[in-house]
């Protein structure tokens, strides 16, 4: 049962990894890293139960927490990137309208 779960998780990690490598935009990579983090949390938890070591759950918990903090940092960065891009676009539009 646990073995099947682990195999399934590894396969889904592979999919996330493929998306991270190929991801046409940076946002695909960010999202796939997030998915990968969640899968790792699950993998560690399931592996802990498989080996009869429920204290692995502590590590899974740390991952979940740290993942959240990391995602907030990335989201903040993405937001500021987007804002820069919008500002640049507005500047371009203004230039093309009035700067002729």
């Amino acid at each position: 049962m646990f073995v099947a779960a682990i195999v399934g998780l590894l396969v889904s990690m592979l999919f996330a990894l493929v998306r991270a490598f190929l991801g046409p935009t940076i946002y695909d990579t960010i999202l796939s890293v997030n998915v990968f983090g969640t899968k790792t949390v699950l993998l560690i938890a399931v592996f802990g139960f498989l080996m009869g070591r429920p204290d692995f759950l502590d590590i899974a918990l740390v991952y979940a927490l740290i993942n959240f903090v990391g995602v907030v940092a990335v989201a903040r960065l993405a937001q500021s990137l987007l804002r820069d891009k919008v500002a640049m676009l507005i500047a371009c539009v203004c230039d093309s309208q009035w700067d002729c």
Partner: peptide
């Protein structure tokens, strides 16, 4: 972001 994945894998 990929180094994040690398670190997750290592752990």
């Amino acid at each position: 972001m990929l180094t994040g994945i690398y670190s997750l894998l290592t752990a």
